[in-house]
Design a protein around this nucleic acid. Structure first.
Lengths: 106, 106
DNA sequence: CATGTTCATCGCAATTCACCGATCATTCGG
DNA sequence: CCGAATGATCGGTGAATTGCGATGAACATG
């Protein structure tokens, strides 16, 4: 995972409403929910919620499964895991005296 | 740490240049460097770099210590630790079937 | 086929972001 | 006190983001 990817995901997570949307999705039965469920739980217009969902989807954080007249969304745990690992790597790279660790080991 | 705080930090980290700046700071001797060091390593104007540094500083991710005619910046490891913990909590809350874990335990 | 439901998408306005060059404040060396 | 250096900040431009209501596409049902 490159900086651009990490930054993209971070930006997608960089809005309180989107964090809340993810949480709502996680709380739903079987981790699945549709746009309406989210809209009900938030003081925002349906179009706005749909936009936020799109941002999360574009970042690859959620998955869309068309199902009849509505869409089911669920969190992509695989991507969360990837992110977690990439984030860990990032933090490690920023740790004190990570400065020449690789050459030390070489 | 609330969603707003997390989102703020995520947004600060949501730009590849800022990730790179943090890395540059970490690579520097004693984890300290000044604006010029960063500017030298990036194909951006000094004012732009200064802007990005300000974003990181506003997010509380770096610390500024005026030192003579220049400013020394360093990463705030304490804040990274906080973030790491908050991020972990976020991921846990998004994990599959985190849906009624608290009521289960209660 | 007509109707209702669900939601993505399309404008649109207001705000924020990213980048730049120019300027200003601070500080060190003579 | 003067000039050079460093870097924050200002003003401006173009692009992206955030919010909204309205429209449109896809589907289920009568």
């Amino acid at each position: 995972m490159h900086d651009d990817d990490i930054a993209n995901i971070m930006r997608a997570l960089g809005h309180p409403v989107r964090l809340e949307i993810l949480r709502i999705m996680a709380t739903q039965q079987q981790g699945q929910c549709c746009c309406g469920d989210v809209t009900e739980s938030l003081p925002l217009a349906q179009s706005t919620v749909s936009q936020h969902i799109k941002v999360l989807h574009d970042a690859g954080l959620i998955e869309r499964k068309p199902h009849g007249t509505r869409n089911r969304y669920c969190i992509r745990q695989d991507r969360l895991a990837e992110l977690s690992s990439a984030f860990g790597g990032l933090l490690k790279g920023l740790a004190p005296s990570a400065a020449g660790k690789e050459t030390e080991l070489a």
